[in-house]
């Protein structure tokens, strides 16, 4: 079985520590003095209106934005970041996309990759060139990385975009499973999660609420 996150050796402390984060864009203050820790088992949803700085916050947490904000981020564990763009190459098949994935996080066997693709509903599409896939299937190829990943911390930017209803339910179950196994998930989404698990809400206008 392709386990999600179970292969990771988890640190006892927080996986990520943000201290006094503040960001200004175009003269507008998006957020200020944002401090929080992401502990193993956390499922945290960042919410806010369009333009509230959700993506910017996630990019800061991931380490893609290194300048132009105040505060500091301490990353204590390997992380997996899925952004707006799927990083799926149209000229490669889904199997090649995962086997040669540019993030260089793991070496997977063909069976592991095929199983991950089957889990995201792409059974039978392993060797189809990705340009023949739909936008939602592109997203699913990208989400298959979650089934392969050994990184304890997942940073997901709008993971439900272009995913159908069944896919959303499966993804929610996957996120909860990852948190229960000692991983942590920080995601941005406009829709509320329908899971029986405590979801910490980080509202980008009102600060952290339990």
């Amino acid at each position: 079985m392709v386990a999600s996150g179970s292969g990771a050796v988890l640190a006892a402390g927080p996986l990520l520590h943000a201290q006094g984060l503040g960001l200004e864009r175009g003269g507008r203050e998006l957020f200020r003095d944002l401090s929080f820790a992401v502990e193993p088992g956390h499922l945290m949803q960042v919410e806010g209106a369009n333009g509230a700085g959700k993506t910017s916050l996630l990019r800061i947490l991931a380490g893609l934005s290194r300048y132009g904000f105040s505060g500091s981020v301490e990353r204590c564990a390997p992380l997996l970041y899925l952004g707006h763009h799927s990083a799926v190459k149209a000229m490669l098949s889904p199997r090649e996309n995962l086997a040669w994935h540019i993030s260089g996080a793991g070496s997977y066997s063909r069976e592991q990759i095929d199983e991950a693709l089957a889990r995201v509903g792409l059974y039978g599409y392993e060797d189809v060139p990705s340009h023949a896939l739909s936008a939602g299937q592109h997203r699913r190829v990208n989400l298959a990385r979650l089934y392969l990943s050994a990184a304890p911390l997942w940073l997901l930017d709008e993971p439900f975009t272009a995913i159908d209803r069944d896919g959303v339910a499966e993804l929610e179950a996957l996120l909860v499973g990852h948190a229960q196994q000692g991983g942590a998930v920080v995601l941005t989404s406009h829709q509320s999660l329908s899971v029986s698990y405590q979801v910490a809400m980080l509202s980008l206008s009102a600060g952290l609420q339990p």
Binding site: A62, L64, Y81, G83, H85, S86, A87, K89, I102
Partner: peptide, 22 residues
Amino acid sequence: RGDFEDGSLEQLLLSPQPLYIS
């Protein structure tokens, strides 16, 4: 350019591998 537009570069920069070699 292609890797920038489809987000692959972000993944490369986050990769645990030395960027010099990549």
